[in-house]
Amino acid sequence: MFEARLPQGQILKKLIEAVRELVTDANFECKPSGLSLQAMDSSHVSLVSLLMRADGFDPYQCDRNRTLGINLRTLASVLKCSSNDDIITIRAEDDGDSAILIFESPSSDRLSEFDLKLVDIDNEQLVIPDTQYDAVVRMPSAEFQRIVRDMQILGDSVTIACSKDGVKFSANGEIGSGSVRLKQSSAVDSEDDAVTVDLQQAVSLTFALRYLSLFSKAAPLSPTVTLSFSKDVPLLVEFRIADMGHLRFYLAPKIDE
């Protein structure tokens, strides 16, 4: 049997809200070490990669590897039936064709149970090579969300340039052009508010704002986001999930024709 109980159930709610517009169906790979998911969007331009380690659950039981194919729209609707402070348990019997979701109120006086039919998903898995990135930018996730939203006023794509001074987002379209420049923080009260640029070499790449906007829906998961860039390599956008794992998005860069 597979059973994973997540005391902070709202992490799962935030996760599924963050990916449901990008990916329709996904295989949850359940292993003794934890829960993972990898899925591309329908146009194969971006990739979602989720890891939730077993030690983030309490308890976590996985006797053998299981693949749970789940429609994320359905899962999102079911998760809306839970409260933010509910404890969420995912369970799957060894020979079952469904995943069971259990929502438990903090005082354990309300228990709801939903049985979701599993779906067969033909999922092409990609191998992501270890990459030494030219630049790694860390910033508040709310700031990332705001910049992506602001740049969308101007056009469909954004050019992100990392230098030793900081990071610059710029866009231009029919109505005009604009940019937002963030300097590296010198002194901040909280590390979560800091903007840092870890630079091997200056890099400038262009990406579709539509996808960055979808990625930024993960902002409620984590106060900070990390953007990793290398020339001619997909952008990595990473949100850490408490102490238990991460939600990563990869986006292929736009290439000048």
Binding site: E124, L126, V127, I128, P129, S157, A252, I255, D256, E257
Partner: peptide, 14 residues
């Protein structure tokens, strides 16, 4: 004009 490329160009299939 720029073109979005697919991830498979960068990442190998399993």
């Amino acid at each position: 004009c720029s073109r979005q490329t697919v991830l498979k160009k960068y990442f190998g299939s399993k």
